[in-house]
Nucleic acid binder design. Sequence first.
DNA 1: GTGAAAGCGCTAACAT
DNA 2: ATGTTAGCGCTTTCAC
Lengths: 359, 359
Amino acid sequence: MRASAESNGGGADDDAAQVMGDGRHARHVTLKDVAELAGVSVSTVSLVMNEKKNARIAVKTQERVNRAIRELHYRPNALAQNLVTGTSKFIGLLTDSIATTPFAGQIIHGAQDRAWKQGYVLLIVNTEGNEDIERQAIRMFLEYKVHGILYSTWYHHEITLPQSLKDMNTVLVNCYSDTENLISVVPDEFNGGRTAAKMLLEQGHRRVAFINTTVESPARTGRLAGYRRALAEQGIAEDPSLIVDAEPTQEGGRAVAEVIRASGATGVCCHNDRVAMGLYDALRNRGIMVPSDISVVGFDDQEVIAAHMLPPLSTVALPHYELGASGVDAVLAPPVHLDDHRVLIACPAVHRESISALD
Amino acid sequence: MRASAESNGGGADDDAAQVMGDGRHARHVTLKDVAELAGVSVSTVSLVMNEKKNARIAVKTQERVNRAIRELHYRPNALAQNLVTGTSKFIGLLTDSIATTPFAGQIIHGAQDRAWKQGYVLLIVNTEGNEDIERQAIRMFLEYKVHGILYSTWYHHEITLPQSLKDMNTVLVNCYSDTENLISVVPDEFNGGRTAAKMLLEQGHRRVAFINTTVESPARTGRLAGYRRALAEQGIAEDPSLIVDAEPTQEGGRAVAEVIRASGATGVCCHNDRVAMGLYDALRNRGIMVPSDISVVGFDDQEVIAAHMLPPLSTVALPHYELGASGVDAVLAPPVHLDDHRVLIACPAVHRESISALD
DNA sequence: GTGAAAGCGCTAACAT
DNA sequence: ATGTTAGCGCTTTCAC
């Protein structure tokens, strides 16, 4: 058996390795090898491999071919396949920062899962904000004939699109560019803010404070608008003293604790979990307990923090996984009829123990 | 010139674009196109593109070719290149979880940076522990003819290697398998523990507690050994009551606060930042202040937490970035003369404000 | 100096 | 039902 060995003639000795079927160093078994072993033509092998439905191959032949494939541990060469079909199975993913935040990971994860399910593989490059890397990466994507490109940022904001992306099948993830017509997959900030407020309102809170971020962004404006809508829906008049700005960090949360205390709010929506964490600290230092004295809601759902605070923090999740997944969907099958080219992804409530019921 | 525009006939209006050299939708310009425009053969173009030194091309020809390349916005087809040279520029990266931890991100980032610098691109797949995905991923790596594979885990532990990886150029990152001869790139737990203890010792602390993790792992044994060594180096006798176990979470830290207080330790090494965070909480509830009453050192350097605690936490960093980067190095150029096939990566001290000096 | 030609491993008509 | 024949876009001898 393994007659193919001879057919290679007295050629190079470098692939005697093939001898034992243990797969070790099975130096590039090709279609031709399989064909020879099975005693058929390469096209036949190709046909059975791809299970083409039109071309009917005799069952016996199929078996023979399959046996050969297994014996030789044959794996098709994706590069050759891509070349001949003229179409790769790559999707490029450009992220501005995978390092400085746990978030990007989830976007990648979502994109990866979805792409995988459709038979695509992700070419990921992290630019860490470096425009040079960005340019090179796009070039590389081009050279690998990617099907499309996901351009993602770690927090939701406006970007100016690299020139070279304009000509490609690009979708923006967690960012947008109003000067382009590209599809943007972004979190639904408005309803996220509304959800946060409602979590408190539904438990009977009427005086709910809102700690906004100081950084200009869709999160800042969108969530505030959502909060207002939620109040309005309950017929609660807005009290400006209940709305305060803070840096979106633990420090920011600590800084506004006094204002929050003084406001007489029974519940407070924080811009993110980190702010909530700082707020917890500073509140406790004043002898104010969560949730018995005051209820708090976070935003983001950063597991490492939110789930392990004391008490565990009720929050609104930023749907990073879904952002990545929907991004891939949009690249593979561009949705039509979008408002403003946006695909809005919901921010779901995550109930834990930082909210108490008021009656 | 640009006669090709006509050859598209009256077709879709979407790529009349080719007309102006603005690159829009430049549908697959090939070597041949460039050759024709420049009035030379494809081989000539190939030669100038690759700046082959042996084949000397007339400077004038080079210029002509380069002009054509620029005009056409020509980019080589990496798939074709890889096919003909028989060697891809891919490195596969298998991670068990990018989702549940911020750490994997850093490994990816390091690997990505290093690979990029050497002209390689990463094929990343996140298995989230799913063996089926793992198998498929490895198959895929094979099909894309990757140069090598990085198998990485989110925390340092022993693994049993998937059968199919044994025949490949694989390096283990943040994990190891004692039954295989594969190179492992792992954090130097021993010296990490030693460093943590020394941070306290160097400030004059003599009674330093050690909160170990309950989960069996190189971190558990290695760091403890390092702590012991550090004590020994200072001629301090070990006090068993100073060594306690706890779950490696905030909850674990809170749980042992009382034991720590009772131990009379002036400083404590925590298994990780999260434990330190819980300890902070519980200590403060008892009116014990960090660092004036007690000094604490963390481990991991999880930025979101450590840098923003009150006071900011001094800690020992887990070198995830370097793990990924060195992993790529090992795949591309296997180091020789390793002890136990391990490449040990240092865990550096990160000084912040949770340690006070004793005199 | 430069071009012609032979593939790399595969798919897809078109024959048979 | 299966084999033959062209390429896909590129690199690389080997002639001229």
